[in-house]
Amino acid sequence: MAKITFLECVMCGHKQPYVPFAASKCEQCDSQWLEARYDYSAFKREILRGLPGRPFNLWRYKDILPLEDGKALDLYPAGGTPLWLSQRYAPALGHAQVYIKDERYGPTSSFKDRQAAVGVAAMVEAGIKEAVIASTGNAAVAYAAACARAGVKLWVFMTSLVPQEKLREAALFGAEVIRVSGNYDQTKQIAAQFAQRRQLFLDRGANSIPARESMKTIAYEIVEQLGWRSPDWYIQAVSGGLGPLGVYQGFKELLDMGLIDKIPKLAVIQTEGCAPMVKAFRAGKDIATPVIPDTCIIILSTGDPGSTYTGLWQLTQRYGGTMESVTDAEAFAAMRSLAQSEGMA
């Protein structure tokens, strides 16, 4: 594993020590956008050697993940998912070279398994025995599974709109599941209040360094699977936006190490019934105005993306990109088309 050398503020460049699970905030300008820095020269040497003897999962890139002594932990496997060249779906739309990163191969079939693997490992290293998380579904199940293996008691707060199977799945792994009659943003507030009253650790999603760092392993895998080449575009449907925010940290590190020659353009996709990022992007604003979600796709129902949107907006301004919304009907039609053309569902 690797010890973070320091945290650097993207806004003002201030450097400060990394304190596990402390509030991610710049001491100089109060910005919440801090990036972890590691010994990249040593890691680059390992990459050039072919990363010998390492499994193909996210721990393959342990040198740039925020754990000091992974050997002392029973690390939860995640990542190492296939990258498929679309054979029928994308060509039918007029695109010959579209690759699909298939995160169904994770322990609970979601890219949130990466977040849970690194986040829970960091909890164990910090001696945390009990934690609280608010989720629209996938993160709750991923954390419940990882916490079960690590022996960490987990309290999961989910809106009552989340499908029953997600609630049951989280409970199956032993998590204490609390249903909240409200939207996801209200659920997050209630979870935070509960954690504060009981003095428990609260996972803060995009504001957590371990959570955000976990997502950059997607970029490392994609580049390695493409023969150490960068794609032209990276496209992801988002709710709160943690995924691409972390992924682009990986692309930036790879560029800085000279392992790729460009950063891909970013496309953020939201459902029209919950598209605060898209609305702000189209208006040319760097801050998103919260909305009340009105969508059947509950896992994409974060009405207030907060500073995460600002980070993603800055990425599009620096590297190029766009933010677009689709209706629920269009999203379901695309899901059916992908299932029938590529066998992915």
Rank of each mutant, 00 (worst) to 15 (best):
M1H: 15
E8A: 14
P17W: 06
P17H: 06
Y18P: 01
F21Y: 13
K25W: 00
K25L: 11
S31W: 01
W33E: 10
E35P: 01
A36W: 13
R37H: 15
D39N: 14
Y40W: 10
Y40A: 10
A42F: 00
A42M: 00
E46S: 12
L51T: 11
R54E: 12
R54S: 12
P55N: 02
I64K: 00
L67S: 02
L67Q: 04
E68R: 12
E68D: 14
K71F: 00
K71A: 13
D74F: 01
P77S: 02
A78Y: 09
G79E: 11
W84K: 05
R88T: 09
A92D: 14
V98L: 13
Y99M: 06
Y99H: 15
K101S: 11
D102Y: 14
E103T: 09
R104N: 15
R104E: 12
G106L: 03
P107A: 09
S110Q: 02
D113V: 06
Q115E: 15
Q115A: 11
A116L: 11
G119Q: 14
V120D: 05
A121F: 09
A121W: 11
M123H: 02
G137F: 09
N138E: 09
A140D: 07
A144P: 10
A148G: 15
F157K: 04
T159Y: 01
T159H: 02
T159A: 09
E169V: 00
A170Q: 07
A170M: 07
A170G: 04
G182M: 05
Q186G: 00
Q189H: 02
I190A: 05
I190Y: 01
A191S: 02
A195E: 08
Q196T: 13
Q196C: 07
F201N: 07
A206N: 02
P210M: 04
R212S: 10
E213Y: 06
S214L: 06
I218A: 06
I218Y: 00
A219Y: 03
Y220F: 15
G227K: 12
G227C: 11
W228Q: 05
W228I: 07
Y234M: 12
A237Y: 11
P244F: 06
E253F: 02
L254E: 08
L254I: 06
L254V: 08
L259N: 00
I260C: 03
I269T: 11
G273W: 10
V278S: 07
K279P: 01
F281N: 01
A283R: 11
G284C: 08
A288T: 06
V291C: 07
I292N: 10
T295Y: 10
C296T: 14
I298M: 10
I299Y: 03
D304S: 08
G306E: 05
T308A: 03
L312S: 03
Q317G: 12
R318M: 05
Y319R: 03
T322M: 07
M323P: 03
S325V: 07
V326H: 13
T327V: 05
T327Y: 04
D328N: 10
A329P: 01
A329L: 14
A329Y: 04
E330A: 14
E330K: 13
A331F: 14
A331N: 07
F332E: 05
Q340L: 15
A345F: 15
